[in-house]
Design a protein around this nucleic acid. Structure first.
Lengths: 210, 210
DNA sequence: AATAAGTCGTGATATATTTCACAATATTAT
DNA sequence: ATAATATTGTGAAATATATCACGACTTATT
């Protein structure tokens, strides 16, 4: 089952969300062409992506929205809830806390940490904010963390997270953190994204979108 | 000159920032191996990336930090300033406004727009906030926009940006916006990123980082 | 001066991803 | 019923990216 290409895996949450929208709109069937226009992914790519999970559609018909949705729900473990901790309740962190992941997703931000006294003890978007000192005490059992702290804090906090037994980190700091091999880190660097866009605009005019 | 792979282009801002750090630390030379450890990119990939720009290093020595930095400064148009407008001054938008892009970068957020009266007229991180109604009036000459608004607003605002003559959009809304072919859109979907990380953790244990 | 160690640049290869294009099948229209 | 149209699933080809591995050259060491 581990033979799904990573590029495909990255598109699954996107497909899932759009199928959910269609379902709410009461749409019963959808073709790869329609889906392609909605999510801006080539229709052949969509069919190929789906095909890794078997023959989910019907020739000449398309895909049954409800069936496909149900299938992805299982595949993406939408039943199983994943608890996440957020470290750093600045503007970016707060944006995450207000994002209602539970609405469509299988992810729940269970707690947040910050060093600022005025934030500790509050509730943001229903998520309690604890002091960063209490990380080890409070975070038992949580395997995924979102890092929205200043770059200068990244290494120190990362080490504590590793110590605590984390398995995945979504790193929004510009620092490229070092972790043992068994821990997965995804980097999202807002400045790099913006710079890359500007670079593409200057050097790859008129090309297709990313 | 347009033959640089996109994957390489996406890493350039990253290299640039780390070279800048090294330079500030007073380091004179650096090898692809050292750089590899810092930015977590395979050293052969780094050498290949650099090689698209010619022979920038010296065999047996490595790369001269200052020279390489100067080279990238030119290549990445670090001299030329790109003005950017930010649409939507919520938590995510505010995070961007506090990010000091000018420090290391060639990008300046020149203005921001929001619909909330209490935000209009203020200055956040040195960036003036205008009312979204005034978008067409104020935004003349700006070619790049960051979209940090609710998904429901995405299509409407996008159309106005297209009308106004935008060429690039960094879209943080979950909506996949539709634009004419000559406009480049990069999507960053925070929920998708988090879901993808969780999916990888469950289905691709122990693999290398992304 | 000779040797050892370090490092680049790159041809070749491996891996990953996307896209084409079409047979097979389902639906719709007449 | 029949023909026309729509759409999947996938082999094959194309494209894109990453990695290996080594000759050539530089620097450091003895």
């Amino acid at each position: 089952m581990n033979k799904i290409p990573q590029a495909t895996a990255k598109r699954l949450p996107l497909y899932y969300r759009f199928l959910n929208n269609l379902n709410h709109q009461g749409k019963k069937r959808v073709s790869s062409k329609e889906l392609s226009e909605a999510v801006k992914v080539d229709s052949a790519t969509i069919r190929r992506d789906f095909s890794y999970f078997g023959a989910l559609g019907k020739k000449g018909y398309g895909y049954n929205v409800e069936y496909l949705l149900g299938f992805f729900r299982k595949t993406l473990d939408q039943d199983e809830l994943t608890d996440v901790a957020l470290i750093g309740v600045g503007n970016l962190g707060t944006a995450f806390l207000h994002y209602n992941f539970l609405k469509n997703n299988n992810i729940q931000i269970k707690m947040a940490f910050d060093a600022a006294k005025e934030k500790v003890g509050t509730d943001i978007g229903g998520v309690p904010v604890y002091h960063i000192e209490d990380l080890e005490d409070k975070m038992t059992g949580i395997k995924v963390a979102i890092l929205t702290i200043p770059a200068s804090e990244a290494d120190g906090i990362t080490n504590r997270l590793v110590e605590q037994g984390i398995t995945g980190i979504l790193n929004f700091t510009p620092a490229r953190i070092t972790v043992p091999d068994h821990i997965r880190v995804h980097h999202i660097d807002l400045a790099v994204e913006l710079q890359a866009l500007v670079y593409f605009l200057k050097h790859y005019p008129l090309s297709k979108e990313d």
